[in-house]
């Protein structure tokens, strides 16, 4: 009996982590996976209405022209910022941002991977777009050759009730190894992934899927003034969305 007790103590000493709690679960989806993979998997699992067009609004630091491509080099919709369009969840779309006074000679081509949809009241869909907010820091980093990745999520109502709505720019990420998609999932429901770099279409862009991988684009009227938008000051941080009245 005494030897058994000593053996138990010995095994605990060899493996002290055995008494600790369990770690994070396995996360098969990651923001570093190739663009379109996460949305494709979620679209097949959710099996949501394929005819649903999720309104999305694009906000620039000051002004500019925003075009959206849905797999073709010809823009499916164009408008001045803040622009709004509607798109099918589960696909990747490419934006074209130009005529910004801060970058008059440059055109940026960020991509939008639409993961999920909102469930607004019927008839009020266009008053609840998912906002995409670009900052000056984003475009500056992209022009320096960096890849800016943002995950936009719909906050969990329980978390939203305890958070100060005026302090929405919480630093929720910090290191390069973090799975931003999983972190956003802990805070709410990931809606889309934005990736911004300095690449231009170039030759053969339409063949290689540069302009997206299909999906439908529809018109969407501008959002009302009661749509909340949180502006973030740092790239690759989780952008919190408040799409409520």
């Amino acid at each position: 009996m005494k030897q058994l007790m000593i053996l138990s103590l010995l095994m605990l000493a060899v493996n002290p982590a055995a008494a600790q709690g369990t770690g994070d679960g396995f996360q098969p989806l990651n923001d570093r996976l190739p663009p379109g993979y996460n949305a494709d998997v979620l679209r097949r699992i959710a099996a949501s209405d394929s005819n649903w067009l999720q309104p999305v609004s694009v906000h620039l630091p000051s002004a500019g022209r925003v075009s959206v491509h849905a797999g073709a080099s010809e823009a499916a919709a164009t408008g001045m910022a803040p622009a709004q369009f509607a798109a099918t969840p589960g696909f990747v779309y490419r934006l074209q941002v130009s005529e910004m006074p801060e970058f008059p000679e440059q055109t940026f081509y960020p991509s939008v991977e639409l993961l999920d949809r909102l469930h607004p009241p019927a008839g009020l869909e266009h008053r609840f777009p998912v906002p995409i907010v670009f900052t000056m820091a984003d475009f500056k980093a992209a022009s320096e050759g960096l890849l800016v990745t943002r995950v936009v999520y719909l906050e969990n109502p329980r978390v939203a009730a305890s958070n100060d709505p005026l302090l929405r720019d919480r630093a929720l990420s910090g290191d390069a190894q973090m799975n931003a998609l999983a972190a956003a999932g802990r805070q709410g429901r990931p809606m889309l992934i934005i990736r911004l770099g300095g690449r231009t279409p170039g030759s053969g862009a339409a063949v290689s899927g540069f302009f997206g991988n299909g999906g439908q684009i529809g018109p969407s009227s501008a959002a009302g003034p009661d749509t909340g938008v949180a502006r973030m000051g740092f790239p690759r941080r989780i952008q919190q969305v408040s799409a409520r009245r």
């Binding site: 709690g21 396995f26 098969p28 990651n30």
Partner: peptide, 28 residues
């Protein structure tokens, strides 16, 4: 690794079940 730590496969393996085998990776 501690018994509470887990290691996710790299992105290449997440896309494919294994070398020379295509299709969805683990978790799908």
């Amino acid at each position: 690794l501690k018994s509470t730590q887990h290691v996710a496969p790299p992105a290449a393996m997440l896309q494919h079940p294994g070398p020379m085998v295509d299709g969805p990776g683990p978790g799908v």
